[in-house]
Design a protein around this nucleic acid. Structure first.
Lengths: 199, 199
DNA sequence: AACGGTAAGTTACCACGGGTAAGTTCCCTG
DNA sequence: CAGGGAACTTACCCGTGGTAACTTACCGTT
């Protein structure tokens, strides 16, 4: 009754990272729906129940991928904005950082934008990313237009987040469009539109 | 060997409409993933293979729902824009019509925005909707800013489409936000931002 | 150094739902 | 009154998410 020994025993935290990496790769390549848990497990060099002991369900694994990406996105954009030397530069650098992030984390982004609106829970997780960025941007705008209605600031922030998302998708289809150019198109409308409001 | 007779025999076109209606209802209520084909079939009063003979697959049925909604959306927005008495009014009426459409076709919209990015094919179908609206808007902008770079016009149109989408989702969470107000927030940035470009 | 206890993994299985093959009933036409 | 085809049904297959029960390696304790 010889059972093949486990290939490699490994600490919990490290396994979790391995699984997350494999999941992003497999999900983004084949698409979440077409990717089986067995495929992810195989990529790690492990069997299915291991995944379930760590993430509970296929959707749980997807959620973990999304959450990780969300954290990275906020990190990257806020660092970039912090390095700015003025309000216009802040908006510009933040936007640019967003587009750069997509280049670096392309599979993770593909997963987010194309394949993960699978259930109420995952939709909420995606919305959480947008809400996070919206709040962040609204905060920036509040500094520039201090006497504006807060509700209106959120509205503008939503405009910007939506615009960025769409420009990003467009850029995915047409790689000739650089991040700089996309940023410029956004600034054309948004920054110019904001001009009469600034004190 | 008595087999229960078919409940009701009906022409192909009519069945197709019945199935589409049922699919929008069932998919949007339970969510596409959780909705079984049997559930849709039951709603129509029919068995599963009937659905497959009409739409080929579950995804095919979803695609048909999306396509139908897309057609309706272009119809509604272009009719509204055609009734305008000037460029600003055109942008405003088109935007407003979009938000009104969401109110009328709420289940269809819920299906689009929350539950259908399921595969490459359905994602393409959703993108097709956005491309359609983007082209439409770029055409409008071209009239207003005749000497602008066409590529830039598409960029601006993407900004607008993305902004509308996000504002719509925000409005879904906060029903106090009226369609008029959402439109106004968009106009704040976009129309004002366009001002220095107009001849 | 032997020894339990626990964390890490495995095998083997279930159930549900998408999809299909084959058979049945009804209607319409010649 | 055939008989042919369109509309439907029954009964089934099978892939995949998810789980229960068992095994094995590691580690601190006496």
């Amino acid at each position: 009754m010889e059972t093949r020994a486990p290939r490699q025993r490994v600490g919990r935290a490290e396994r979790e990272r391995q699984i997350l990496d494999a999941a992003v790769a497999v999900f983004s390549e084949r698409g979440y729906q077409n990717a089986s848990m067995d495929a992810v497990a195989k990529q790690v060099g492990v069997t299915k129940p291991v995944l379930y002991s760590h993430f509970g369900s296929k959707e749980g694994l997807l959620l973990a991928c999304i959450t990780q990406t969300r954290t990275q996105l906020l990190e990257v954009t806020s660092v970039a904005a912090a390095a700015a030397d003025g309000p216009e530069d802040m908006l510009r650098r933040g936007t640019k950082a967003f587009f750069d992030f997509l280049d670096v984390q392309r599979p993770a982004w593909a997963l987010l934008c194309s394949e993960s609106a699978i259930s109420a829970a995952t939709c909420s997780a995606l919305e959480e990313i947008r809400r996070q960025q919206t709040d962040f941007i609204a905060g920036m705008l509040a500094v520039q237009v201090p006497d504006a209605d807060p509700h209106r600031l959120i509205g503008w922030a939503n405009v910007i987040v939506g615009a960025c998302e769409r420009l990003a998708v467009w850029r995915g289809r047409d790689p000739r469009l650089t991040g700089e150019q996309a940023t410029e198109y956004l600034m054309d409308l948004v920054w110019t539109g904001l001009a009469p409001r600034r004190p």
